[in-house]
Amino acid sequence: MEVRTIKVFTTVDNINLHTQVVDMSMTYGQQFGPTYLDGADVTKIKPHNSHEGKTFYVLPNDDTLRVEAFEYYHTTDPSFLGRYMSALNHTKKWKYPQVNGLTSIKWADNNCYLATALLTLQQIELKFNPPALQDAYYRARAGEAANFCALILAYCNKTVGELGDVRETMSYLFQHANLDSCKRVLNVVCKTCGQQQTTLKGVEAVMYMGTLSYEQFKKGVQIPCTCGKQATKYLVQQESPFVMMSAPPAQYELKHGTFTCASEYTGNYQCGHYKHITSKETLYCIDGALLTKSSEYKGPITDVFYKENSYTTTIK
């Protein structure tokens, strides 16, 4: 009895394709271990004539594949690729409408935090270190965002349907971005203890939790000093293409032309909904596939993004 075979390709990165001759009487799992086709788990399936010449994702289970996976995804987590594939199996079914010149995501599976993050990423200057993220990001900007969303979920250790947080998501993504040249110098002034300067680099240099107003941050924000008295913390120097200011959701007025974009969060910790506000020729609110415009805006804002380049204080 002759062994019926077909020729397929296996890959971990969709760049390096490895030619395989597979036995049609055995499952993919018996031949390769966990195997995925377009995100779908085909591990328990036997090869079919229609699979001839198709590319299958496999887990990096030998040295060659491990090197290829690390170079593309910059992670050695053995569960990463499987999590990416199972997320992709959902995100490829989502709709990605162009809204006001940006790629958004039609609401499904509690994905409003991903839509808000995706919209924000198209408006701030950011370059990702893992080629996987950078490639998928370019495709997302062009309207094909399924891979990018699935990668975000995998890097953030999230599953489809789980509630997510924009600030946490951005923080994970910033860790995989090139923020080497970003720098922030802060000064804390206390009447009792004097003053202390701190220099922050990388992710810490672009994120701040405690106030939404970048102007206020430049002037000074009140913080408790270690001595128990009130101290003032203010920005001395900022070198970065953008800054992200966050605070627990509270009524906040966004003035046209003073910011790049913002995240609105309605609801409580267990259950809520994100919308995205962007400042173009007027203010726009993007909620999944829905767009509304207004000249002014007041609502429960939790993150505001500002364009920056270089700032030095005039406070002496």
Rank of each mutant, 00 (worst) to 15 (best):
residue 232 T to N: 06
residue 90 H to N: 08
residue 119 L to D: 02
residue 102 L to C: 03
residue 159 T to G: 10
residue 132 A to W: 05
residue 67 V to N: 14
residue 109 D to N: 09
residue 113 Y to M: 05
residue 251 Q to K: 11
residue 87 A to K: 05
residue 192 T to W: 10
residue 36 Y to W: 15
residue 125 E to Q: 13
residue 180 D to I: 06
residue 58 V to N: 07
residue 198 T to P: 03
residue 266 T to Y: 08
residue 22 V to F: 07
residue 190 C to V: 01
residue 247 A to C: 09
residue 221 V to W: 06
residue 219 K to D: 09
residue 98 Q to F: 08
residue 178 N to R: 08
residue 205 A to P: 03
residue 59 L to V: 15
residue 248 P to G: 04
residue 172 Y to M: 14
residue 301 I to T: 01
residue 201 K to W: 15
residue 86 S to M: 11
residue 6 I to L: 14
residue 87 A to P: 06
residue 71 E to H: 10
residue 96 Y to I: 02
residue 81 L to F: 15
residue 87 A to T: 04
residue 287 D to Y: 00
residue 139 R to N: 11
residue 235 L to W: 03
residue 10 T to H: 08
residue 307 K to N: 13
residue 45 I to M: 13
residue 79 S to T: 15
residue 140 A to Q: 03
residue 174 F to G: 02
residue 226 T to K: 14
residue 68 E to H: 07
residue 287 D to R: 01
residue 68 E to S: 07
residue 152 I to L: 09
residue 261 C to G: 02
residue 115 A to V: 04
residue 136 A to D: 03
residue 268 N to G: 15
residue 226 T to V: 13
residue 62 D to P: 06
residue 167 R to N: 04
residue 107 W to E: 03
residue 216 Q to R: 09
residue 240 S to L: 01
residue 284 Y to V: 13
residue 271 C to W: 15
residue 128 F to W: 12
residue 76 T to F: 13
residue 238 Q to L: 01
residue 255 K to F: 09
residue 67 V to Y: 15
residue 14 N to S: 11
residue 59 L to I: 13
residue 78 P to S: 08
residue 56 F to D: 05
residue 154 A to Q: 04
residue 252 Y to G: 03
residue 56 F to S: 05
residue 311 Y to G: 08
residue 229 K to P: 03
residue 86 S to E: 15
residue 108 A to H: 04
residue 290 L to Q: 13
residue 114 L to H: 02
residue 258 T to A: 14
residue 163 L to W: 08
residue 262 A to G: 01
residue 36 Y to K: 02
residue 150 A to V: 01
residue 252 Y to T: 13
residue 50 S to F: 14
residue 155 Y to W: 05
residue 223 I to T: 13
residue 47 P to Q: 03
residue 152 I to W: 04
residue 227 C to K: 01
residue 215 E to A: 09
residue 211 T to F: 07
residue 194 G to S: 03
residue 237 Q to T: 12
residue 67 V to G: 12
residue 98 Q to I: 11
residue 14 N to Y: 07
residue 195 Q to Y: 11
residue 155 Y to Q: 05
residue 220 G to Y: 00
residue 283 L to H: 00
residue 96 Y to M: 03
residue 128 F to T: 03
residue 15 I to P: 06
residue 53 G to C: 11
residue 302 T to D: 00
residue 134 Q to R: 13
residue 162 E to S: 08
residue 73 Y to N: 02
residue 51 H to R: 04
residue 5 T to H: 10
residue 276 H to I: 04
residue 57 Y to C: 09
residue 283 L to I: 15
residue 28 Y to C: 05
residue 81 L to P: 09
residue 101 G to Y: 04
residue 217 F to R: 01
residue 102 L to E: 05
residue 90 H to A: 14
residue 161 G to S: 06
residue 23 D to I: 15
residue 92 K to T: 10
residue 169 T to R: 02
residue 41 D to Y: 07
residue 131 P to L: 04
residue 148 F to M: 13
residue 287 D to W: 01
residue 62 D to G: 08
residue 42 V to Y: 12
residue 156 C to Y: 04
residue 214 Y to D: 01
residue 79 S to Q: 09
residue 99 V to K: 14
residue 205 A to D: 00
residue 190 C to T: 00
residue 10 T to W: 09
residue 298 K to Q: 09
residue 177 A to D: 00
residue 16 N to R: 09
residue 57 Y to W: 13
residue 263 S to D: 06
residue 85 M to H: 06
residue 303 D to H: 00
residue 309 N to G: 13
residue 110 N to D: 04
residue 214 Y to M: 12
residue 296 E to N: 07
residue 214 Y to G: 01
residue 116 T to P: 05
residue 256 H to T: 11
residue 214 Y to W: 09
residue 224 P to H: 11
residue 65 L to V: 07
residue 17 L to I: 07
residue 115 A to P: 02
residue 249 P to S: 01
residue 63 D to R: 08
residue 220 G to L: 01
residue 62 D to R: 08
residue 12 V to E: 08
residue 220 G to H: 03
residue 10 T to C: 15
residue 237 Q to N: 10
residue 100 N to Y: 08
residue 18 H to W: 06
residue 95 K to W: 07
residue 149 C to V: 13
residue 275 K to T: 12
residue 81 L to K: 06
residue 238 Q to E: 00
residue 23 D to W: 14
residue 297 Y to V: 05
residue 109 D to S: 06
residue 107 W to S: 03
residue 275 K to N: 05
residue 275 K to E: 04
residue 261 C to F: 00
residue 192 T to M: 12
residue 183 K to D: 05
residue 206 V to D: 03
residue 290 L to N: 15
residue 210 G to P: 04
residue 144 E to L: 08
residue 295 S to D: 15
residue 313 T to N: 15
residue 83 R to W: 02
residue 184 R to D: 00
residue 200 L to E: 09
residue 223 I to N: 05
residue 38 D to G: 09
residue 260 T to A: 13
residue 24 M to A: 12
residue 295 S to M: 11
residue 170 M to I: 08
residue 219 K to L: 12
residue 208 Y to F: 09
residue 170 M to K: 00
residue 315 I to S: 15
residue 10 T to K: 13
residue 68 E to F: 04
residue 55 T to Q: 07
residue 301 I to M: 05
residue 207 M to Y: 09
residue 255 K to M: 12
residue 120 T to Y: 04
residue 52 E to T: 10
residue 69 A to C: 14
